[in-house]
Design a binder for these strands. Structure first.
Lengths: 200, 200
DNA sequence: GTAATGTATGATGTTAACAATGTAGGGTTC
DNA sequence: GAACCCTACATTGTTAACATCATACATTAC
């Protein structure tokens, strides 16, 4: 029903990613191509592609001829470091492209914010996590930082394996509104401050 | 003939990566699955897998139903930023795991250094680039930083698209010797200083 | 009894045929 | 003549069959 039809590969990738974020596959689980192909009603090809992709996104670890394993979340010290790098990337990209962003891209960010709102109201942790990242990604793209997205996403992905702002979705949403408003109004300083407050 | 046989996918991926670093495929080139499959004498499957992988490594950009394009190297300002992030990751990982590294892993690093030496003597820029990265990766792994390697590699990959220490291979090799010696001898401070001097 | 080896099994790796998609060119309509 | 549509072709997306690899278990030699 989507107006922008996705390839089977993309759908499978998104579904598995969602399952990973939902905790359906605990860390250490071995994922079987056949099993997932059967579940989605597709052949092993797209599932295989998804495994390669998700391995590079940081969710899965590939072992030749042995399959993929769900990676363990980083330890607290690594978490802290990864977070600091992520924040640096966002700060850099926003600073660099803040003045060149277009109206359409601002609309994209607004849409992402609305989706995050819906997710927060639904209370599904995996959806909140996905929409949270989507919002930040839209901002990066709006600031011309597409090139940095894959690297940035990899860092986020690893963190998301332990996404647990449980019950605090109202606060999460507010923090993103606090990013969007100065972003829309062209206030770089406040935008960055709000991003810093959100990523911690 | 290799003792550690690689899968076709790995071989294809390595070959294409090497070609990219050699400048065989200039930025903006569209890569065709059929063409490369024919060249390597394999089917499109592994080539396809390689495309997905190399897209995530930062070399190629995927467009659904349209194929992959060789990405353009980053502009000078982005280069500088990417380099600083790369340096931070290496510094963090080395600091964190310097004392826990094993003798075997030190031997691995030494072997990587020797390979870099050979590459420098051969004068092939793409080989030097590959061995250069391999050396640094071995150090990261030796310090228990496997988890950070994919992210770190992505950053390096983008830089490598403009690897041009042309003619200065002797200096490049020396810089790595300067990293290895204090690394082997357990001098953290000097190791980090040498890394900083090398990554710039 | 233990260790090495052979074998069965279930997984991933690879292939080639088929389906779906996007692009470019020419033709038609206004 | 310009815009639109339609068709043909080239390319990617998907599938299912086949090949290869790794593991576990039984068997055998010692």
């Amino acid at each position: 029903m989507s107006l922008i039809p996705q390839t089977v590969r993309e759908q499978v990738t998104n579904q598995i990613r969602n399952d990973l974020l939902s905790g359906r596959f605990p860390a250490g689980t071995m994922l079987r191509e056949i099993e997932l192909a059967a579940r989605f009603g597709v052949s092993r090809g797209p599932v295989r592609d998804a495994f390669i992709q998700l391995s590079h996104e940081g969710y899965l670890a590939y072992q030749a001829n042995r399959g993929v394993m769900v990676r363990h979340p980083p330890n607290p010290k690594d978490r802290e470091f990864i977070t600091s790098v992520r924040l640096q990337i966002e700060t850099y990209v926003i600073q660099r492209g803040f003045d060149t962003k277009s109206k359409e891209s601002t609309a994209d960010v607004k849409q992402a914010l609305e989706r995050l709102h819906e997710a927060c109201q639904s209370g599904e942790a995996s959806q909140v996590a996905i929409r949270d990242i989507e919002f930040h990604q839209k901002i990066l793209v709006a600031c011309g930082g597409e090139d940095m997205v894959p690297t940035w996403r990899q860092l986020c992905s690893r963190m998301l394996l332990t996404y647990t702002r449980l019950g605090d979705y109202g606060q999460a949403y507010k923090e993103h509104v606090a990013i969007f408003e100065p972003f829309r109004d062209g206030n770089l300083k406040k935008t960055l401050a709000a991003v810093r407050a959100n990523i911690k």
